[in-house]
Design a protein around this nucleic acid. Sequence first.
DNA 1: GAGTTAGTTGCGAATGATTCGCATGTGCAT
DNA 2: ATGCACATGCGAATCATTCGCAACTAACTC
Lengths: 147, 147
Amino acid sequence: MKHTSSLADSRLRDIGKRVTSQRRIVMDILASAEGHLDASEIYERARQANATLSLATVYRTLKALCENGVVRQLHLAGERHHYELDREDRHAHLVCSVCGRIWEVDSTSLSRAARAAGREFGFQVTAARMEVVGVCASCRNELGQEK
Amino acid sequence: MKHTSSLADSRLRDIGKRVTSQRRIVMDILASAEGHLDASEIYERARQANATLSLATVYRTLKALCENGVVRQLHLAGERHHYELDREDRHAHLVCSVCGRIWEVDSTSLSRAARAAGREFGFQVTAARMEVVGVCASCRNELGQEK
DNA sequence: GAGTTAGTTGCGAATGATTCGCATGTGCAT
DNA sequence: ATGCACATGCGAATCATTCGCAACTAACTC
């Protein structure tokens, strides 16, 4: 069971971290997830690859990756943080306040707005996130039927 | 020391909540703060008006106000939630990743982007927030001097 | 390839924000 | 004025996240 470890390995070396199986596992999980995951989701998946990997290691790995810009920590609605690989594309999150599902949206207008807002305030923008909360189409249908 | 309680009172009655001095205090604090506050900031200010008001009451009040759309809970960077009166204007937050200060920015483009993104996904948008992270002008100056 | 060592891990305990349980207190409808 | 459902205060409980420390191991040196 070989990993796509060359990617993870070089990223780790780039940021001056040792390559460990635990870190590879966490990075592979983030790389193969389409969206963002929270720490316990990452932990559960990681346990499938290594039954003794600890939650603390998940947190420590995420922290190290965040500090080095490899991973981004998201502050969406809810109690827990979410994490995603920093793919350098700026996108927005659409959060349905009924079912809680989250969509990712590429947003060129977000990027533009971010830069404009930053310039106006003498801000050197390094990241931008937009969270749009509302009711998704399917929930609106269900709500409509109830009435 | 009269409060501007008529506003708070009617808001509370509107959402079917009893008017208590504790709730008035919390709402007045939110109304007079220009930006957003976290729970402990609200708690500290509230204690100045009522020394026995409890932190649990602050949280319960904020929760009730959030559930009724009077207050908005923000998920900015950092561990704690922030709260602000829902003034129905859509604005963005500029977060300096060096000093941690936060600015609010009126953003008509944000509003436009949110609506557009929502429409594209059949989303009925109820709230939009944008968080722009970067380095503020004064921190950039200081960093520049160090080099 | 074995030795050394600083960086990592696992575990459980600690922390910090937020919530809950319950006995007591108090708006407000009657 | 009276009753009772809703609110509050307090401390205990919960949940995510972090820390302390002893055991482990990646990676540098010979």
